[in-house]
Design a protein around this nucleic acid. Structure first.
Length: 892
DNA sequence: GGCGTCACG
DNA sequence: ACGTACGTGACGCCT
């Protein structure tokens, strides 16, 4: 039977563009969308073996839809130039594939595809529609399947009418009604405000269509009814806009789009120009009967999967161990479910070898027959390749198991290769690297309330695919690390650090619940009186924590003047309130309330919930693959934002203690590390001079900017200079500085100009780094950590400006992060070499916190600042100030 | 789940 | 003319 494949060209190109990391050939042409498109195309051709193929594109800016709604697709971001330049090349490539493409003025690709599926249906052919846009689900029928890309491009979900029914409980055509109610921001289709997918589905399950919903409004009530009444017209219009037109006057016949395979010579040439080496090799291999990308996936599907269960035949276990002990290249995957690794559920693990994947249930791992396997897991000298072994190490620890010898971590390496990639999921990493991978966790487990562990067979297969993906990713990622000069950063810094972090987290920090509870009780008292004062002054009771209600009280009931608004209403943030402080007696009380309630909910109640009953300790989780600059982040709870600036909050730190009697908390923080880094990388003579003489940098800046002597710098001048210094580190703008100092942008601009005329090396650095980012597409830190800034070439002012500030800030913040990470690795080594019992507990970006036995206090007071300042050799000295006490509060 | 707010460096 | 300072995480409210 004939099978037509109809591809929504614009949609897939867009998806590919945003799913792939930036990629250019040596001529400077961006190629990531083309690469993603091609990877997907190859896979689809292999999987579906279509007899007819067509790629449809949108043509022109105006379609018939604009006649009924001129705002259609309005407000949409302009196609980034990095993508537009790829379209002509993509179209050539599609021709080299021997595939027909088609566009028609006044119609969108959807309409062309809709018309063709109708024709396919009439001719009794099957069709598969490929798109990134769920709107096209309306085309599904007995013969038409819609393949929608899932989080990127290389994976698709196949929607038949049955699948649509299962997922949405709707018939394909009702997708139009769904969109009519929900709207679609990306196409500027309004829908009904406040109606999202959930509400829309509920309405449609009950009434079937937009028209029926509107006809039965009397059966609804409240806000929803109101909104549907007000926006009935929008809903009807939106439905109309979402309806695909299936009578496009096409000038193509079925015969025109018959697919006869690609022209190897033309395609080879196109790949060479694009510098798609891996794709080229795959196709060459394919010509010789080797494995193509899609065949690799097929091979993965046919993995030889060996399930190892508790009390089972131990022949396979013996076989696995023998091969692991011989150092066979492998991929290890340990499935830990849950966000907090100190409280996860382990579902099993898998070890992939070249020709087989062994999947072990947790019972099997804990079984007496698996003693040798556990020994291998724990063996520090047995090199392991895995995925997020940091989390795995914690999870296994709490399950009474050890993980040692982590040597290659796919997640950590993927983070280094592109730290801005939101979540480093294995499925996404595979996609970006063009390697066959597992389905997304979400599709296997579901999410949120629907989370469910699947049947054994599905689970085993999922784990097997993950372990196998890890095994196949290792060489690919290693090559990437080398290409980007980050091998050393990984091997000598990030990988060892991940083990140190796990150690700190497992150690935990002692917290005295009694102290928190005392503070909580005090807060409670003050809160109670503050609340009643606020109610009294407002003349009404309301939820002070609700910005909506607070706004109504302040700006409507009390008639204060609203100075700023947010998306949803009045802004009531501290800046606004401080501006109103003199206008009404209630304002200081509200500010006070805010401060106390933050302390109570986040720091007293929040922290109390995190204290482990058995040990009285809090175990945070440092995340090494989140921050785009290379910093760590801390979760469950966040111990990097414990109050310090205001005395009331600072008292929280009294609850953090050493875990052994008589020990001390020792802390050391870098002094002005970011400005010292700036002095180093900019080479600015004035700035270097200041640090070589260990001057107060803000006073020195004030002297130079205001042209006065040290004695003439008053508090206000120093404050301004300090703000300028912050601004410099953040990637200065007159607007930002003006807001911070509460002066006009013009005045701020003068400050900045004055600063740059004194610190000319800094100005040069700022100019150069932006130019370099534009040229290379990325910036780097001291240790070659990389951050891509594709938006630096954007034609959108905001996006571009943001990227420029990031280009200035990331080398500074990121190098500072590199340095303290180095200090952690050096410190860990120093402690072990000297046989010290002191323990590293916390890192707070420029500060390290230890617990120290009394007999080591003197040693540590020397050693710690020494190691920290010696972590990197810069053109200016690094300085660390050390302090200690009986708790974290006292160590100041 | 999105938003506003606020804690830290 | 544009309209933001850089990097994070947690809480309460509201829909």
């Amino acid at each position: 039977m004939d099978k037509w494949m109809l591809i929504d060209g614009n949609s897939i190109a867009y998806r590919a563009f945003f799913a792939m990391p930036p990629l250019t050939n040596s001529a400077g042409l961006h190629t990531n969308a083309i690469f993603g498109f091609t990877t997907m195309l190859l896979k689809l051709l292999e999987e579906h073996k279509p007899t007819h193929v067509l790629v449809a594109f949108d043509a022109g800016k105006v379609t018939f839809r604009h006649e009924s709604y001129s705002e259609y697709k309005g407000g949409r971001q302009k196609t980034p130039p990095e993508l537009s330049e790829q379209f002509p090349v993509l179209k050539e490539l599609i021709s080299a594939f021997g595939i027909q493409q088609y566009e028609l003025n006044g119609y969108e690709a959807d309409d062309i595809i809709g018309t063709l599926t109708k024709q396919a249906d009439e001719q009794g052919a099957e069709a598969v529609v490929v798109t990134g846009d769920k709107d096209l689900l309306q085309l599904a029928s007995d013969r038409v399947t819609v393949a929608v890309t899932r989080k990127g491009v290389s994976d698709v979900d196949l929607y038949t009418p049955a699948a649509i029914d299962e997922k949405y409980g709707l018939k394909p055509l009702q997708i139009i009604d769904l969109k009519g109610l929900m709207g679609d921001t990306s196409d500027n289709i309004p829908g009904v405000p406040g109606v999202g997918e959930k509400t829309a589905l509920k309405l449609l399950h009950e009434h079937g269509s937009v028209e029926n919903v509107l006809a039965n409004l009397d059966r609804l009530k409240g806000k929803l009814k109101e909104r549907l009444e007000t926006h009935a017209g929008d809903a009807e219009l939106s439905k109309k806009l979402a309806t695909i037109y299936r009578e496009v006057p096409l000038e193509r016949s079925a015969e025109d789009i018959r697919y006869g395979g690609y022209d190897a010579a033309a395609l080879g040439e196109a790949f060479r120009r694009l510098e798609f080496k891996s794709l080229s090799e795959r196709l060459d291999l394919q010509a010789e009967g080797g494995a193509s990308a899609s065949e690799a996936k097929a091979a993965a599907d046919e993995l030889s999967l060996k399930a190892i269960e508790a009390g089972g035949d131990d022949k396979e276990m013996a076989e696995l161990l023998e091969r692991l002990r011989s150092g066979a290249r492998h991929g290890l995957y340990i499935e830990a479910i849950g966000d907090n690794p100190h409280h996860v559920e382990l579902l099993g693990m898998a070890v992939a070898l070249e020709d087989a994947v062994y999947v072990l249930s947790m019972e099997a791992v804990k079984d007496e027959s698996a003693a040798a396997f556990r020994e291998w897991l724990a063996d520090e000298s047995a090199r392991k390749s895995g995925f997020d072994m940091h989390k795995a190490e914690l999870a296994l620890h709490w399950a009474g198991l050890k993980l040692g010898g982590a040597a290659f971590d796919v997640q950590l390496v993927a983070y280094l290769l592109d730290p801005t990639e939101g979540s480093q999921l294995l499925s996404g990493i595979c996609e970006r690297q063009g390697v066959a991978g597992p389905s997304s966790d979400e599709s296997v487990y579901g999410k949120g309330a629907k989370f469910k562990v699947p049947d054994e067979e599905t689970l085993r297969r999922h784990l097997a695919l993950k372990a196998d993906a890890v095994r196949r990713l290792e060489p690919v990622l290693t090559e990437e690390l080398e290409r980007t000069n980050m091998k050393e950063l990984y091997v000598d810094l990030e990988q060892p650090l991940s083990r140190i972090l796990a150690g700190m987290e497992l150690q935990g920090i002692q917290v005295e619940k009694g102290e928190l509870e005392r503070l909580g009780a005090e807060l409670e008292d003050t809160l109670t009186t503050t609340i009643s004062e606020i109610y009294q002054l407002a003349g009404t009771e309301f939820k002070i924590n609700s910005p909506k209600q607070l706004g109504e009280v302040l700006f409507e009931r009390l008639g204060l003047k609203a100075t700023k608004k947010t998306k949803t209403g009045y802004s009531t943030d501290a800046e606004v309130l401080e501006g109103l402080a003199k206008e009404h007696e209630i304002i200081p009380h509200i500010l006070h309330y805010r401060q106390l309630s933050k302390l109570q909910s986040t720091y007293v109640e929040g922290l109390l919930k995190e204290v482990r009953e058995e040990t009285g300790k809090i175990h945070t989780y440092y995340r090494q693959t989140i921050a785009a600059t290379g910093r760590l982040s801390s979760q469950f709870p966040n111990l990097q934002n414990i109050p310090i600036r205001l005395e009331e909050g600072r008292k929280i730190r009294k609850a953090f203690l050493p875990s052994e009697p008589g020990w001390s908390i020792l802390a050391a923080d870098y002094s002005q590390i970011e400005l010292r880094v700036l002095a180093h990388i900019s080479g600015d003579e004035g700035l270097k001079e200041a640090f070589l003489h260990d001057m107060d940098i803000h006073t020195k800046t004030a002297m130079d900017v205001f042209g006065v002597e040290a004695g003439e710098v008053d508090a206000n001048m120093r404050r301004s200079a300090k703000a300028v210094n912050f601004g410099i580190v953040y990637g200065i703008s007159a607007f930002g500085l003006s807001r911070n100092l509460d002066i006009t942008p013009t005045e701020a601009g003068k400050f900045i100009e004055q600063y740059f005329s004194v610190f000319q090396g800094v100005r040069k650095f700022m100019d150069d780094i932006v130019a370099q980012a534009k040229q290379d597409g990325y910036v780097t830190t001291l240790l070659e950590r990389r951050r891509y800034l594709p938006e630096i070439k954007s034609s959108n002012f905001n996006l571009r400006s943001f990227a420029e500030r990031t280009a200035m800030n990331t080398p500074i913040q990121g190098s500072a992060a590199d340095i303290i990470k180095l200090a952690m690795v050096h410190m860990d080594k120093a402690l072990r070499e000297r046989g010290l019992r002191s323990r590293m507990l916390l890192q707070v970006h420029d500060e390290l916190v230890f617990e120290v036995p009394p007999d080591e206090l003197e040693t540590m007071k020397q050693l710690l600042p020494e190691v920290m300042s010696g972590a990197a050799k810069l053109d200016v000295p690094l300085k660390a100030d050390v302090s200690f006490g009986d708790n974290w509060y006292e160590a100041k």
